[in-house]
Simulated scan of single mutants.
Amino acid sequence: MAVLILCALAISPRWAFGASTRPAQGAAQEVAAYPSRPIRFIIPAPPGGTTGILGRLVGQRLTDVLNQPVVVDHRGGAGGVVAAEITAKAAPDGYTLLVAYHSHTTNATLNPKVPYRPVDDYRPITQATRAGLVLVVNLQMPVKTVQELIAYGKANPGKLNFSSAGNGSGGHMAGELLKQMTGIQAQHVPYKGTGPSLIDVAGGQIEMSFAGMVPVQPLIRSGRVRALAVTTTERIPSIPDLPTVAESGVPGFEVVGWYGFLAPAGVPQPIVAKLHAEIVKILRDPELTKRLTNDGAEVVASTPDEFEKFLRADVVKWAKVVKASGARLD
């Protein structure tokens, strides 16, 4: 059998070479022509949240640069697990990207059975931004400072609820960290996105929430919620009068949310490189940078390798908080 195979190869070298290179040539041509059809941004939350806003800002500009539509597809649910699974299982061709945020690295600890690995099942493209959260309360709450909130929580055990964009979100982790560091009791109420969460805070159904700057600022400015503090270690330039949680009596408190772009594992390196170059260029555009900074965000625009290292470290960082809180993702 071995002799027959060798003879066949000897007789038809061109045929054999052509058969082995045709798929490779096709793949190379597809990469060179990328993108040749619309790209889909998967958003792990309903409309109205920071991920959706960022996805649209970048997507609109990427459409102009690549001459192909970028479609924003909201897939909220299960704290981001639905969107993450869709992306992980998508074809690795660069036409499906996840606009990920901080819950992506906490979900695996909240539920070890999530159907994907938060780092290894993706090709990191870039960490787009990092941003603090704002602690807000409804107007019926008799508190105007973090210390008054802590005192209220201790004096009224079981009466304090805090909402978030979902299990594992930055708002969820910030609330759990505040509980651990102050000893107050507060029940977490997860929503399917920041928008619905803030609606119920403004409506008085929920006492407090940690929310992203972009979606919460209109409610603060219109007087529909009361802002108490920010979760960064330093005050945010766009709202300098608002103190940090740390300086308000909880030293060492810090929660910084992140947002970034991930592709499915297996996407060819040239496509990753092209997406990275164009998205980073968009993020560093002075007009967009100014808008993001005014919204309390800091542009990161990291390399794929830097983003991967960050993701691995973030998984480890929040695992301790998740385990101590006893929180789980159902």
Rank of each mutant, 00 (worst) to 15 (best):
V146Q: 03
A78R: 14
A8W: 13
G296Y: 03
I271M: 11
L311E: 13
G76D: 12
I220H: 08
R37I: 08
L329R: 10
G193M: 01
D93N: 13
G158N: 06
G166M: 04
P264R: 02
A128D: 04
T51A: 15
M1G: 12
I236L: 09
V267T: 15
V134L: 12
T105F: 05
V146P: 03
V245T: 03
G77W: 09
P286V: 07
R123I: 04
P23D: 06
P251A: 03
G175K: 07
Q60T: 14
P92Q: 03
R312K: 14
T145G: 02
V134F: 14
P142S: 07
Q187R: 14
V82N: 12
P46N: 15
L329M: 12
Q127T: 10
F261H: 00
G212A: 15
A108C: 13
V255F: 10
M141E: 13
L139N: 15
A91S: 13
P264H: 07
A24C: 05
R22G: 00
V201T: 10
T232L: 02
G55K: 00
R123T: 15
A19W: 12
Q68A: 12
G79Y: 10
F261T: 09
A324K: 02
L6N: 11
P46S: 15
G94I: 05
G49K: 05
P268C: 11
P251Y: 07
L283F: 03
V255E: 14
R235H: 02
V321G: 01
E247S: 14
I86F: 11
I11M: 12
A10R: 09
D200P: 04
L54K: 05
V189A: 07
G266D: 06
A174G: 12
T233R: 14
I184H: 08
Q187M: 09
G48Y: 08
K113V: 08
L283H: 01
H276A: 09
Q205D: 13
L98N: 01
A2Y: 01
A108T: 14
S222F: 00
